[in-house]
Measured scan of single mutants.
Amino acid sequence: MDSLLMNRRKFLYQFKNVRWAKGRRETYLCYVVKRRDSATSFSLDFGYLRNKNGCHVELLFLRYISDWDLDPGRCYRVTWFTSWSPCYDCARHVADFLRGNPNLSLRIFTARLYFCEDRKAEPEGLRRLHRAGVQIAIMTFKDYFYCWNTFVENHERTFKAWEGLHENSVRLSRQLRRILLPLYEVDDLRDAFRTLGL
């Protein structure tokens, strides 16, 4: 685990949702873990991680939370803000982990979509996460503002959007929607068949 708060310049560089993210070879993951008790929730931990020694950050987080003694009788909500969406292998590990821990839910807000040039399996990884109940969305100004005030050593500076933040968020949201769209259509068809008694 690194220091509790991320350096301001590092956050702006790593999380910037630019179309061509040249040189950004690491994934950063800011997280919040909450325990839900009926209508209220309690923050248990927050911080950030990054890839280390060739190990992807998603797997580092799974190792980290596996060391906790999570009460199977309580519900936990984990929220990630990531600089890149998970690769196919990490998505598979996360989905398997969630299946083994049904009392834990995960939301992922990502700055950019990761696509490995040689495999093109990453969209299927995102669909697999979605099927496992993970809520996946692209970061918007509101999410960047929250991260800036929660995870960044900002020295009381106000978060300022860079040129193109909104447009890139919209573009990436549409792309993510197209990736997940087949799932929505299949769910709609299943509901229609059930309604018709087929």
Rank of each mutant, 00 (worst) to 15 (best):
L113M: 01
L113N: 01
L113T: 02
L113R: 10
L113C: 04
L113H: 05
L113P: 01
L113I: 02
L113Y: 04
L113K: 05
L113S: 12
L113F: 14
L113A: 07
L113V: 09
L113D: 02
L113G: 10
L113Q: 05
L113E: 11
L113W: 02
Y114V: 01
Y114H: 01
Y114A: 03
Y114F: 04
Y114I: 02
Y114K: 00
Y114S: 03
Y114E: 00
Y114R: 09
Y114Q: 01
Y114T: 04
Y114G: 06
Y114M: 00
Y114P: 08
Y114C: 03
Y114D: 12
Y114L: 01
Y114W: 05
Y114N: 00
F115K: 14
F115I: 00
F115Q: 09
F115P: 00
F115H: 15
F115S: 03
F115L: 07
F115M: 13
F115Y: 15
F115G: 04
F115N: 08
F115W: 15
F115T: 01
F115E: 04
F115R: 09
F115D: 02
F115V: 04
F115A: 02
F115C: 08
C116N: 05
C116P: 05
C116W: 07
C116D: 00
C116K: 07
C116F: 13
C116Y: 14
C116G: 10
C116E: 01
C116T: 06
C116S: 04
C116M: 08
C116R: 07
C116I: 09
C116L: 08
C116A: 13
C116H: 05
C116Q: 00
C116V: 15
E117K: 04
E117V: 12
E117S: 12
E117F: 08
E117I: 12
E117R: 06
E117H: 10
E117N: 13
E117A: 10
E117P: 05
E117Q: 12
E117M: 12
E117G: 10
E117W: 03
E117D: 14
E117T: 14
E117C: 15
E117Y: 06
E117L: 07
D118K: 02
D118H: 13
D118F: 02
D118G: 03
D118N: 13
D118A: 13
D118R: 14
D118V: 02
D118S: 03
D118I: 01
D118Q: 03
D118L: 14
D118E: 06
D118C: 03
D118P: 15
D118T: 04
D118Y: 08
D118W: 00
D118M: 13
R119W: 11
R119P: 05
R119C: 11
R119F: 10
R119E: 11
R119D: 13
R119L: 09
R119T: 11
R119H: 14
R119Q: 11
R119M: 10
R119Y: 11
R119S: 12
R119N: 14
R119G: 15
R119V: 08
R119I: 07
R119A: 11
R119K: 11
K120R: 15
K120P: 04
K120N: 12
K120I: 02
K120G: 06
K120F: 15
K120T: 07
K120S: 09
K120W: 14
K120D: 06
K120A: 08
K120Y: 15
K120V: 06
K120L: 07
K120M: 10
K120H: 13
K120E: 10
K120C: 13
K120Q: 09
A121Q: 12
A121I: 02
A121K: 12
A121N: 12
A121W: 10
A121D: 09
A121G: 07
A121E: 07
A121Y: 08
A121R: 13
A121T: 03
A121S: 10
A121H: 09
A121F: 09
A121V: 06
A121P: 15
A121M: 14
A121L: 11
A121C: 08
E122T: 07
E122R: 01
E122M: 03
E122D: 00
E122A: 12
E122S: 08
E122Q: 14
E122C: 11
E122W: 01
E122K: 00
E122P: 06
E122G: 14
E122L: 03
E122Y: 05
E122H: 11
E122V: 00
E122N: 15
E122F: 08
E122I: 00
P123T: 05
P123G: 05
P123N: 07
P123L: 09
P123A: 09
P123C: 10
P123V: 06
P123H: 08
P123R: 15
P123Q: 13
P123W: 02
P123K: 04
P123Y: 05
P123D: 03
P123M: 11
P123S: 06
P123F: 01
P123E: 06
P123I: 04
